[in-house]
Simulated assay, not measured.
Amino acid sequence: MPASYDPASYDPASYDVAIVGAGIVGLAHALAAAREGRSVIVLDRDTQANGASIRNFGFVTVSGQEQGAVWRRARRSRDIWLEVAGPAGIAIEQRGLVMIAQRPEARAVCEAFLETEMAEDCAWHDPAAAGALLGAIRPAQLEGVLTSAVDIRVESRTAIPKLAAWLAEQHGVAFQRGVAVHRVEHGQLETTAGIVRAAEIIVCPGDDLTTLFPEAMAGITRCKLQMLRLAAPGYTLPAAIMSDLSLVRYLGYAALPAAQALRHRLDVEQPDHLTHGIHLIVTQSADGSLVVGDSHHYAATPDPFADDRVDALILDEFRAVFGHVPPVLARWTGTYASAASHSRVTSPLPGVRVVTVTSGTGASTAFALAEETLASMSLPKGTET
Rank of each mutant, 00 (worst) to 15 (best):
V355P: 03
E190L: 14
F213H: 03
V60Y: 00
S376H: 03
K162T: 01
T356A: 12
A159G: 02
G172H: 08
V150F: 11
A28W: 05
F367S: 02
I201K: 08
L256A: 06
T275L: 15
I314G: 01
A375P: 04
Q102I: 05
V268D: 11
R331C: 07
A286D: 05
E215D: 14
E269F: 02
A32R: 05
C110E: 01
R55M: 06
C110H: 02
V181R: 01
F175Q: 07
D267M: 15
W332F: 09
L209T: 02
P326K: 04
T116R: 13
V292R: 09
L256T: 02
S285Q: 14
G219P: 03
T236H: 13
Q176N: 12
E117S: 14
I90N: 03
L256H: 02
Q170D: 15
T275G: 13
P348R: 11
M227E: 02
S148T: 10
R73G: 07
E200K: 04
A232C: 11
I152E: 05
L212Y: 05
S63C: 12
P348V: 09
E372T: 10
V248W: 04
D207Y: 06
Q260D: 14
M99D: 05
L189R: 02
I92N: 03
R229N: 10
H273E: 12
A254N: 11
A366D: 12
I220F: 00
T61Q: 09
R309T: 14
S364Q: 00
A18G: 05
A259F: 07
D11L: 14
L374M: 15
T385F: 14
P304H: 01
R344L: 05
S39T: 11
D311G: 11
A129L: 08
M99N: 03
Y15C: 08
I41F: 06
L379K: 10
S347L: 12
L163S: 03
A259Y: 05
S14W: 07
V84W: 10
L245C: 03
S347E: 09
Y336E: 00
S243K: 04
E105L: 13
A123D: 14
I19W: 09
T158L: 12
T333R: 00
D6Y: 09
P214D: 13
L209R: 13
P348Y: 11
M377N: 10
Q188P: 00
D121I: 03
V282D: 14
A165H: 11
Q48R: 13
A259I: 10
R222G: 00
P380L: 15
G86D: 14
I137K: 10
G219N: 01
A3E: 13
I152S: 01
T373D: 12
P87A: 09
R344F: 00
A368H: 04
A123H: 06
R177E: 13
A129F: 00
V62H: 00
Y5H: 06
E384K: 11
Y10N: 02
D272A: 14
H297Y: 05
A13P: 00
G293E: 04
S63Y: 01
S246L: 12
C110P: 04
L82G: 03
P233L: 13
L133R: 08
Q188G: 12
W81S: 06
N50F: 09
D294H: 00
I195V: 15
S376N: 05
S343D: 13
G68V: 05
A49C: 13
M217S: 08
I241Q: 09
G144W: 04
L142V: 08
R73S: 09
R38E: 13
P214L: 15
L133A: 07
P12R: 14
S378N: 12
R249D: 11
T346K: 07
Q260R: 15
